[in-house]
Structure formats: structure tokens, C-alpha cells
């Protein structure tokens, strides 16, 4: 199991470093990317485009394989339907993202970098996730 944990840790580390190098952990830069009608800074679009380009190869390969490199299962999302949950949830997320300039990954990195406001954001985000989880669990699955 040791190499599983190590490879997951390395993926997390690379991801975190990638976010820092891209400038995603600077909310002012993220807001500038979202500020179409102001001094728009499109550079993060290239960051995302570059990541998707690499991802395209990886996921094309992943879809063809029956197991991952460590011999386990490849877990790909099964949901296909475009529903109210998907759209409304994403709109709510986007509003929060635009307000503070943090999305979940960069917020975690900034929390670990010792920024008080990032810690406040992450605490509120986890509270939000927990509230959602508790509400979900009270409702019978349809």
C-alpha cells in the first residue's frame, strides 16, 4: 500500500506546486482573470488550456485501459445527466469563486501557506460542504 500512498501524495504535491506556479493561489490574479470588463488578465486561460491538453492524452488512455498502473480500478464518473443540481451548484460555486478569488484547491494551498483569510475561507467552505452532506443524508435517495 506504501507506493499507493506515496504516488497519491506526489500527485497532490505536484498539483499544489502547479497551482502556486500558475498564480492560482493569488486571488487578485484570479479576479483579474474573471474581470472581463476591467483590466482583463487572460493568462489563467492558458494555464487551464495547457492542463487540459495534457489531460486529454491521459484520459484518452485511461478510457482504453481496464486497470491503473498500480493494478487497481480506474474510477471514472458515471453520471451523464445534465440537471438542475449540476447547473445550480456550479452557478453557486462560480459566485463564491468570483467573490473571493479562491476555488477549493488554491484555498487549501493558501491555508497551508499560513494566510488567515484563506483559513477563514476553507473553514466556511468545509462548513458549507458539511451542511450539504447532512442535508443530503436526511433525504432518501430518489
Amino acid at each position: 500500500m506504501y507506493h499507493h500512498r506515496l504516488s497519491e501524495f506526489i500527485a497532490g504535491l505536484l498539483f499544489g506546486l502547479g497551482l502556486i506556479l500558475a498564480g492560482m493561489t493569488n486571488p487578485a490574479k484570479v479576479i483579474a482573470f474573471l474581470d472581463l470588463f476591467g483590466a482583463w488578465d487572460p493568462s489563467l486561460a492558458f494555464v487551464m488550456g495547457g492542463a487540459i491538453l495534457v489531460g486529454l492524452f491521459a484520459f484518452t488512455l485511461a478510457k482504453k485501459r481496464t486497470s491503473n498502473f498500480l493494478g487497481g480500478a480506474i474510477h471514472l464518473p458515471k453520471l451523464k445527466n445534465i440537471d438542475r443540481r449540476l447547473v445550480l451548484g456550479s452557478l453557486i460555486f462560480g459566485a463564491g469563486w468570483g467573490l473571493a478569488g479562491f476555488c477549493p484547491g488554491p484555498a487549501l494551498v493558501s491555508l497551508a501557506a499560513g494566510q488567515p483569510k484563506a483559513a477563514g475561507f476553507v473553514a466556511a467552505m468545509i462548513a458549507g460542504m458539511l451542511v450539504f452532506e447532512l442535508i443530503e443524508r436526511r433525504q432518501p435517495k430518489s
Partner: peptide, 22 residues
Amino acid sequence: ATVVIAGLLVGVGTRYGSGCTS
């Protein structure tokens, strides 16, 4: 205040919509 509201929205929204930027 904005940071906390934003965090709540991101927490609820990403779970309800099953995902975020990554």
C-alpha cells in the same frame, strides 16, 4: 465577511454541482 460568504457558497456549490475547477 465576503471571504466567509464566498467559502460557504463554494462549499455548497461544488458539492451540489459535483465538482469544481479541477
